[in-house]
């Protein structure tokens, strides 16, 4: 059966083994910068896989996933700061809050199609950014800082990114299993029918709104957990970093598009290609030309343009197409 996990091949096994060994290995030889890079690639990868349940499988291009990401981040921070809830639980609740938000937002959002959906998600991100910046309970525009605590395991405070990488790997494993089951189930096929032609889907008796809502809620759930990982790693949340159109919403989308939106693992691969490139550009080019602002985002734009003109199916999609041709 297509839904079984037994189809793990040599590539997958190598990938899993590498991901398991690499953070520990890099950490032990003192390359903390690269461990952090892996953590970021995992965090964005989790969000990009979730985003792609809407984009690649349902045909809804969201440029507002920062909303779910940010709400997840704030959930972990607020629970830990105000209610002393451990982020171990907070991470799950981050997903739940974001997922519920997805449910609440779905009646208005999912009535929209194509570019109107995309535009509305951009506007939604702006609404959340401006509202959180003016909301005192969540720290307003200065955000919330998580204090350093003695109870390190309880508050998930570790030096470096290594342990966080393994936590992210755990989340990723759960996400991959859940998403794989969904996209190979009846729901997944319904979603792809909606993507191809919503009218046909309705004619076939598919309750398109119901299945789009399911996709949005699950997508929001895992994006929220990715946001929660941001909080435990960086211990600081603020509305301008978290509800950002570029560094959150667009990064997630670009990771997905680079990897290939019509493939299952594409967004994860895309994240592992794009995040290191972006981090490299940020760390080296921006450091070399500190007075040239915005250069890394310009590079991001060029990458996105080249991909959409010459390989709109993404890297994994391109490889798949080439293999099928032979």
């Amino acid at each position: 059966m297509a839904g079984s996990l037994a189809r793990i091949n040599l590539y997958h096994a190598t990938g899993i083994a590498t991901l398991l060994v690499l953070p520990f290995l890099l950490d032990s030889i003192g390359m903390a910068f690269y461990v952090n890079m892996i953590f970021l690639a995992l965090m964005y990868g989790i969000a990009a896989l979730a985003w792609n349940l809407m984009m690649g499988y349902t045909g809804l291009f969201s440029l507002g996933h920062a909303v779910f990401f940010g709400v997840g981040s704030y959930t972990v921070a607020i629970l830990a700061l105000y209610y002393n809830v451990t982020p171990w639980v907070g991470l799950i609740l981050a997903g739940v809050t974001a997922g519920l938000l997805g449910l609440v937002l779905s009646p208005p959002l999912l009535r929209l199609r194509s570019h109107w959906f995309t535009l509305a998600t951009i506007a939604l991100g702006e609404i959340f950014r401006l509202s959180f910046a003016h909301w005192d309970y969540v720290g307003g525009s200065s955000g919330l800082q998580m204090p350093i605590s003695e109870r390190r395991l309880y508050y998930l405070q570790f030096t470096g990114a290594t342990i966080y990488s393994y936590i992210a790997l755990g989340v990723l494993a759960v996400e991959l299993i859940v998403l794989w089951r969904i996209v190979n189930s009846r729901i997944g096929f319904y979603l792809q029918t909606i993507r191809e032609d919503e009218l046909v889907a309705q004619t076939l008796g598919i309750n398109t709104f119901k299945y789009k809502t399911i996709a949005l809620a699950i997508s929001a759930f895992f994006t929220g957990i990715a946001g929660g990982l941001y909080t435990v790693r960086f211990r600081y949340v603020d509305p301008f970093a978290l509800f950002d159109l570029i560094t959150i919403s667009t990064y997630i989308a670009v990771a997905g598009i680079i990897g290939g939106i019509y493939t299952f693992l594409g967004p994860l691969i895309g994240s592992f290609i794009f995040i290191p490139v972006s981090e490299y550009v940020r760390a080296n080019i921006v450091q070399a030309f500190p007075r040239i602002y915005g250069l890394h985002v310009t590079v991001l734009g060029v990458i996105l343009l080249v991909i959409s003109l010459f390989a709109p199916e993404g890297i994994l999609g391109y490889l798949k197409k080439r293999r099928e041709k032979r």
Binding site: M55, G59, F61, L63, S114, H115, T118, I246, T250, A253, I257, I261, R291, I292, Y293, G294, L295, V297, T298, L300, G301, V302, L304, L305, I307, S308, L309, P312
Partner: peptide, 28 residues
């Protein structure tokens, strides 16, 4: 004639290049 998703991605890429190219060239 590309799929709509590609059209959105491409014009959004132009947005990024112009907006942040200007930021890089003339400062924020």
């Amino acid at each position: 004639d590309a799929p709509l998703l590609t059209q959105i991605a491409a014009t959004f890429a132009i947005l990024l290049i112009i907006r942040y190219g200007v930021q890089a060239a003339f400062g924020p």
